[in-house]
Amino acid sequence: MNIVVCVKYVPDAQSDRTFNESDNTTDRVGVDGLLSELDEYAVEEALKLVEAGEGEVTVVTVGPDQAADALKKALQMGADKAVHVKDDAIHGSDAVATSLVLAEAIKKTGTPDLVITGMASTDGTMSVVPAMLAERLGLPQVTFASELSVDGSTVTIRRDGDAASETIVATLPALVSVTDQINEPRYPSFKGIMAAKKKPVEEWALADLGIDASQVGLDAAWTKVESFTKRPPREQGQIVTDDGDGGTKLAEFLAAQKFV
């Protein structure tokens, strides 16, 4: 079974994330980045499926030069090959344009039996690219899988909701997005790190995919960030001095804030 996993290079949530002053897009260059944690579950699930049978895992990303780091991590984990779509014109693309680029890149890799994505990116957190991508590829979409199994020509997933857990079956080829409940992503092993050095990484530009620059980028985006304001620094909390009536004062404070 051949699987394509879409991954994203995102700013590290533990560092200071910000926007570009010039065009209000996410700053992906002046900040430490990494493979989106939620995509690690997608990579892991693909590796498990291929290890249990046969086939190849191809990871695909759309992003600036630094996004190669996200691909490298996926290759170190065990993916077989990678595709990096990079083109200055892509800068500022919204989810609609991103799904177009991903769809064309996936088509160019051949016809996978399964496309797996994370449930959302950890920066944009929109969760819409999987659905858009399935639509563009004409594949059945089964999203938010917390369990996944493939049997012959079907894929079965479990989607956990507040009220019930659904079991959903789709015919292959299909697109599945997975949650952080589905598995425990592995750490790259030393062997994996060394092996990744020799794995092929294709670099494609928009022209290689037959996409016109006017279809992507900030100018083609359906939504734009008009302005941003830095979150104000947290204010010093209220200190309650205990003069023997600390308990009462605390209770009064909580009641006033409608916490109790």
Binding site: Y187, P188, F190, K197
Partner: peptide, 13 residues
């Protein structure tokens, strides 16, 4: 570079 990649993984672990 591989030593540094490996350092990152062991640190994360």
């Amino acid at each position: 570079k591989e030593h540094e990649d490996f350092r990152k993984v062991v640190r994360e672990f």
